[in-house]
Design a binder for these strands. Structure first.
Length: 451
DNA sequence: CCAAATGATTACAG
DNA sequence: CTGTAATCATTTGG
């Protein structure tokens, strides 16, 4: 007995609550009731734990050799069997733990617990695909994979260790019980139950291991795959394409789902990245239109070129007002933008250009016109066309030159970006065009406005 | 090294 | 769910 409990504690630190350490007291040992002899034996058995090891050993031997021993033992076993069965009312088949299933699934999905290489690689591939990074993350790939392998290795060695310890302990307990079954009534079912208990204990430890492994993987994932941490700027070309679309749809820079998909394809980025880009672009453009004037003109000219190639002649003689064309024409009320200190000095200039309110009722405001002027070689920096005020251009140009154009109009709080409404939002869609529309867009603009 | 630029995320609203 | 506004975290250019 002493040995046993000692063993228990050193081996696993697991308390085996179900272990029938104490001998059940036979309340009604019917067959043995009248035999003083048997009562004596029982007494000796009951008090065996009070004795020293040597004493007990000797007693044990004596008892074992007693003539009544086999009979008594079988009776005890019978009783034990009965009580044992009644104890085991509910089937102790463990129900599949949903928590454990979740962990297992995740580990499998992450390629930690699956087959050696395949799982991990595919998990990495999927993760990177989700991150939407296209090209040069092979370094991160291998780094990530290395760490994952590391986790995987630790997980497996630990798992193996637990398994081994579990088996070792189980064998030990089984041997012990078998050994004791010579003096104690221990049925095979009892042993089986004991083994189950041990296994459950160990599997709960395993679950902890799985849990912490999952955590490690999650941390690894967030470290390596969180694009926020490791973000790459889009390629020049991608930015080009996105800007082209943005400025050629300046009046309604909200690409449809299909348009987004096409842009995503063209730019080798994901749709959500396109959405991000447009979200950022819109907000940043709106926040400081002046800063983007140059860019706007650049892309306006760009699209104008392509447009012109398609419809050059028609555009040439039309006093075109095009709501959907890039570059310049803005429509926004004064209150849309706040003045900040650095821009105050430009107020006079701004007022000259915009008149008192800066808003006007004409829907179109000469985007294409500005584009054309660019084409003609007389580049007009920071165009802010004022419809019906043809002389504004030259005045603005002159003053703009004297001040440095980008400075003069940058962040101009009075200019109303074409397509922006009084609430700081864009007007309703004017020309929903497809991705391929730098040409198309200009084209339709032209046809819209050329009469 | 610093500030600007920039892609992504978050909280919130409709 | 989409878009806005604010913010974070990283990259880039001087």
């Amino acid at each position: 007995m002493e040995e046993q409990s000692h063993l228990m504690h050193t081996l696993g630190g697991v308390t085996l609550t179900g272990l029938p350490v104490a001998l059940p007291v036979p309340h009604d040992g019917a067959d043995a009731r009248n035999k003083q002899d048997i009562g004596d034996i029982l007494h000796q058995i009951m008090t065996i734990t009070d004795q020293s090891l040597d004493e007990a050993q000797a007693k044990k031997h004596g008892l074992n050799c007693h003539r009544m021993k086999p009979a008594l033992f079988s009776v005890l076993c019978e009783i034990k069997e009965k009580t044992g069965l009644s104890i085991r009312g509910s089937p102790d088949e463990d129900p599949p733990d949903p928590q454990l299933m979740r962990l297992d699934n995740m580990l499998l999905a992450e390629g930690v617990s699956g087959p050696e290489k395949g799982g991990g690689a595919s998990a990495v591939a999927a993760a990177t695909a989700a991150a939407g990074v296209g090209a040069d993350n092979s370094i991160e790939h291998s780094d990530y994979r290395a760490k994952l392998t590391q986790i995987r290795q630790i997980y497996h060695t630990e798992l193996e260790k637990y398994e081994q310890a579990c088996n070792e302990f189980t064998t030990h307990v089984m041997n012990l019980l078998r050994e004791q079954s010579r003096t104690r009534p221990i049925s095979p079912k009892e042993i089986e139950r004991m083994v189950n208990i041990i296994h459950r204990k160990f599997s709960s430890i395993q679950m902890q291991l799985k849990q912490s492994t999952c955590e490690a993987v999650m941390i690894l994932r967030s470290r390596f795959l969180d694009a926020r941490r490791k973000r790459r700027n889009f390629s020049k070309q991608a930015t080009e394409i996105l800007n082209e679309y943005f400025y050629s749809h300046l009046s309604n820079p909200y690409p449809s789902e299909e348009a987004k998909e096409e842009l995503a394809k063209k730019c080798a980025i994901t749709v959500s990245q396109v959405s991000n880009w447009f979200g950022n672009k819109r907000i940043r453009y709106k926040k400081n239109i002046g800063k983007f004037q140059e860019e706007a003109n650049l892309y306006a000219a760009k699209t104008a070129v392509t447009a012109t190639q398609a419809v050059a002649a028609a555009v040439h003689n039309s006093q075109t007002n095009s709501p959907a064309t890039p570059s310049s024409g803005f429509q926004m009320k004064d209150e849309d933008f706040q003045l900040d200190g650095t821009e105050d000095k430009n107020n006079l200039l701004n007022n000259i250009f915009t008149g008192s309110s800066g808003s006007y009722s004409l829907p179109g405001s000469g985007d294409m016109f500005m584009s054309m002027t660019s084409l003609n070689g007389s580049y007009q920096p920071a165009q802010v066309p004022v419809p019906g005020q043809t002389q504004g251009d030259s005045i603005r140009h002159a003053i703009g030159q004297s001040l440095g154009y980008s400075d003069g109009l940058r962040g101009n709080p009075l200019y109303s970006p074409h397509g922006l409404n009084g609430n700081g939002g864009w007007h309703d869609a004017v020309t929903p065009s497809s991705v391929t529309s730098p040409i198309e867009g200009a084209n339709s603009v032209h046809s819209d406005t050329s009469n």
